[in-house]
Amino acid sequence: MIEEIKKQVRELLTSGTIKGFLGLREIDGHIAPYLFCDAEDMDSMNLGDYKKPGDARYPLNRILIHLLSHYPDEILGVLVRGCDQRGLNGLYSLNQLDPEKVIPVGIPCPPELAEACECSRPYPENRAVDGQAEGYSNQTLARIAGLDIGKRFEYWMNEFARCIKCYGCRDICPMCICRECSLECGDLVGKGDIPPENPIFHLIRAVHMADRCVDCGLCAEACPADIPLRTLYKKVADIVKKEFDFQAGYQPDAKSPLNVLDQ
């Protein structure tokens, strides 16, 4: 699969369709985000697979926003999985990226990764290569939802209690784009205490993720305290899906119902 992707990206680079390709590269035994500007560099490209499929994924869309705000006239390619493509769709509708400046190169996730993520759509709409994992239902969420309300509250409060307020969940998130963050607002979250005021700290972020989270799971992977953030955001996204029939990034042109003033 990777050879076919390299070939396609080389063609995009040599034809001048894109100025650079934002992907991942293996270097010195590590996998790192890398901006490929030279087709010859493509040999070292990696899909983010280190010990397990997809265990070395990085917030490429977040870097892409940064790159294109710095070089607004260029067109860049970017490596995308299903979640990243949903992220792009969301970022287009939030006016953070211009679709005319982005050429996504899509790959489907292998079943092992899709199952571990409990991802409902582990592939982008347009793929550079064949192969397609099936979507998985959300067993973890169903299990926690099955607890009675007292136990459920206790479960989450125990998880939140480990928070060291590193802001890693926010800092890694490709969909966190606000210039001013509510989590740093002294009126909402008291300063200087660890763990932060709970559950409000995590619920503020959860509310902001409800119409935005594309379920990439980078937050949970970045959490030093192993708080199951992904499950929390799946829950709030599930509420928005049930109430408004909206899932972030699933329909390319859809606007979030939480941004609409209506009856």
Binding site: I31, Y58, P224
Partner: peptide, 20 residues
């Protein structure tokens, strides 16, 4: 910017607020 290294055996893609 700072991005935690996922392939590091020390921190495995995580950082504290100082590192970030």
């Amino acid at each position: 910017g700072t991005i935690p290294c996922k392939t590091s055996p020390i921190n495995e893609g995580k950082l504290c607020i100082k590192g970030w």
